[in-house]
Design a protein around this nucleic acid. Structure first.
Lengths: 218, 218
DNA sequence: TAATTTACATACTAAGTGATAGGTAAAATG
DNA sequence: CATTTTACCTATCACTTAGTATGTAAATTA
């Protein structure tokens, strides 16, 4: 990060003086997010204490507040960051808008495969997702928006596949999109609860295969 | 409740003296459980305050502690009570051990139908279920045991149906049992998040129908 | 009526909770 | 070197948390 780094030049265009963002800072942020992910996964947003997260990265609470002025800010930062990575992974495997039903299945399989490697993050999402059903929860809106978007995205791809003649004309894209998302979420919880008895990837693959068999154009 | 009520006679057989359980007590318990269900649904176990639950039934915290000496006791009491009702509902619709796959589908449909009428209770279960994935959660063991039992029960019925020739020989009862439970849980969360856009019963019926089509013996 | 038990309440404690106020040392820049 | 900014820390705040210790009025029975 040099003095000519665009990030160093504020909107006004005037170069700033003083100590710039230290090299260690992005690393600190990563540490904080890792610690918070673990804490939220284990105790939820309400249950996890902000001070305990600070302590886990070797900081005091005000030190942490320097990075995230409120607990809610940290929560939303984590969710956004993770979501961006997931969107990227999906985009990388669908095979683009032309990927069709085959591309969609491939992307879903890959998403599941990756999730099976990051249980603590999946657990954080599962815990926060359910917790956020509460009326006053700070991530309620976030999860609602995300659910809507994921569903719309899946439904649009299914609609395309239907028009392509890949899947049956009487398959309802909205219904199937909701089902796929819900089944994935539910299987993840089942897997997290008993990792030794549930094979997430195999379980999801078999579901997808059966779904495929019942909606693919014959 | 009379003096000859068996519940009044302690294990020793000696009749007790003093003020017996007042008529209002079972009603109080019901009130407490209703209030706690609502609180746990909205804020989870860790997020909901014991004192707030007491206040909701017009009591002080020590008054509530008279009924449930620790917060955890109340949690487990709620879970047990609800679960017993669910078991009863299932038993009432399977058509007994001879009900087979048809009875199983009927019972699952009825369970879903009833759940659609008690969103706050489903929400409490969903919230606590995900929250209980945390390593130190007081209901962790409860949910694990329950999951195991539900799965074993479903798998046993599927195995029976397979032996009866109702479903295909290559359908794996364990896999399908896990999938059914997971999909139901996932759909419930989707429904709770957007009740206006997800029709729980229809969504689950369509899933079951498609599952049926792909595993029924041909 | 006297003894006993219930169903609470008042008052309290020790330990957290997220957040604020104000300071300081180090680093980078002009 | 002087200035500025960062990246924290100490101390404190007003509240809330689950839980305890103790008391008491009412209900019931011997």
């Amino acid at each position: 990060m040099s003095a000519t780094d665009p990030a160093r030049v504020p909107p006004g265009g005037k170069p700033r003086r003083g100590r710039p963002r230290a090299a260690a800072t992005p690393e600190r942020r990563r540490q904080i997010i890792a610690a918070a992910t673990e804490a939220f996964a284990q105790q939820g947003f309400n249950g996890a204490s902000f001070a305990a997260i600070a302590e886990r990265v070797g900081m005091t609470l005000p030190g942490l507040l320097h990075y995230f002025p409120r607990k809610t800010d940290l929560l939303l930062a984590i969710l956004d960051e993770r979501d961006r990575e997931t969107v990227a992974l999906i985009a990388a495997h669908t095979g683009g808008p032309q990927g069709g039903w085959a591309g969609m299945k491939r992307a879903l399989h890959e998403l599941c495969r990756r999730n099976a490697e990051i249980p603590e993050i999946v657990q954080m999402f599962s815990a926060l997702s359910a917790e956020s059903l509460g009326r006053e929860h700070p991530a309620r809106g976030w999860f609602e928006t995300r659910t809507r978007e994921v569903n719309a995205g899946l439904a649009a791809m299914l609609e395309q596949a239907r028009l392509n003649g890949e899947i049956r004309a009487d398959a309802d894209p909205g219904i199937i999109a909701t089902e796929i998302a819900a089944t994935m979420d539910g299987l993840q919880i089942a897997w997290l609860r008993m990792p030794d008895r549930v094979d997430l990837v195999r379980q999801f693959d078999l579901y997808l295969e059966r779904l495929d068999g019942s909606i693919r154009a014959s």
